[in-house]
């Protein structure tokens, strides 16, 4: 590990939650504006998390604590691997570890709300995981590598131009992973839903704060993935990331929550068709 990498890792660990929190704050502000409200301050997510750390610890089962921490650990590792520009599939698998522990923690409480939330979370994972793998395979077919470092070093045009449909496929995964409508089925950022708070129902106080911080890490990771689609220019990268996130917020605001019975078949069919179309295009181009 070189000195640069060490710095990158430390920076990623420290800076990611700050970026993630700010993004969450902006998200709430923009959402409020879209709804004709004034909205909370940009720093609101930080206040929320700090407050949660100051709350009394309340658990149903000690496994919740264990799982909350493991969720955070997995997400931090995801970010570290991203900062090291490692293998996309490996990063993705580590991200899945976090999801699995979140679900196990939710299943640990014998609450019908968190149990159903956990089941839905699993189905959401089932929906987006294959889609993300397909996106990574597309990136490999185009660039010849799964390693981010080699993609950046050897491939010198924006990925978006050759993988536009796969970018849309990744959009599906983003909606699910960022807990946005119409796919905020397992838990939602907004108020409460028919299963109270889904997977997060039984997490409270500091443990909820830990999960929130992990979510910030995840957000940064997902935005990092977006950024990879235009790695040649910082300006366009920023534009792409901002536009994508704004698109997600917009979708969130104009959509109602759907059921998994709708999400699973539609996301898969749409995702598969677009992925195949894009693969076909790549093959045509290569000849």
């Amino acid at each position: 590990m070189s000195m640069n990498e060490v710095v990158a890792v430390i920076a990623a660990i420290l800076v990611s939650p700050i970026i993630g929190g700010l993004v969450a704050g902006l998200d709430r502000k923009v959402t409020a504006r879209l709804q004709g409200r004034y909205g909370p301050p940009i720093l609101q997510p930080f206040y929320d998390v700090l407050k949660l750390f100051g709350k009394e610890k309340m658990i149903v089962n000690y496994w919740q604590i264990f799982c909350a921490y493991m969720y955070l650990v997995a997400d931090v590792l995801t970010i570290i691997l991203l900062a090291l520009q490692s293998d996309l599939l490996l990063i993705f698998f580590v991200l899945a570890v976090g999801g699995v522990f979140l679900v196990i923690g939710a299943l640990a409480a014998e609450s019908p709300y968190s149990q159903i939330g956990a089941q839905r979370e699993l189905i959401q994972m089932l929906t987006y995981e294959p889609l993300l793998i397909l996106v990574f395979v597309g990136i490999y077919l185009e660039t010849g590598s799964f390693k981010i470092s080699e993609i950046i070093a050897n491939y010198n045009q924006p990925l978006l131009l050759s993988l536009p449909l796969l970018f849309v496929v990744m959009g599906y995964a983003l909606v699910i992973k960022l807990k946005k409508s119409p796919f905020d089925i397992a838990t939602s950022h907004h108020a409460h839903q028919e299963i109270v708070k889904g997977v997060l129902t039984e997490y409270s106080g500091p443990y909820l704060a830990i999960i929130e911080i992990s979510h910030w890490y995840e957000t940064v990771f997902l935005l990092g993935l977006c950024a990879l689609f235009w790695h040649t220019s910082f300006v366009w990268m920023a534009v792409l990331v901002v536009a994508t996130y704004f698109g997600e917020v917009l979708v969130d605001n104009v959509c109602a929550r759907l059921t998994w019975r709708w999400m699973l078949p539609h996301a898969w069919t749409g995702g598969l068709i677009m992925a195949f179309a894009n693969y076909f295009w790549i093959y045509e181009k290569i000849g």
């Binding site: 909370p40 708070k197 039984e202 106080g205 909820l208």
Partner: peptide, 21 residues
């Protein structure tokens, strides 16, 4: 609602006492 918009003060309406202050 937008008229009063208590989220200005960071107030959220949650559905679960375990998350509430």
């Amino acid at each position: 609602t937008p008229v009063y918009d208590i989220e200005r003060f960071g107030i959220l309406n949650v559905g679960n006492p375990k998350h509430a202050d």
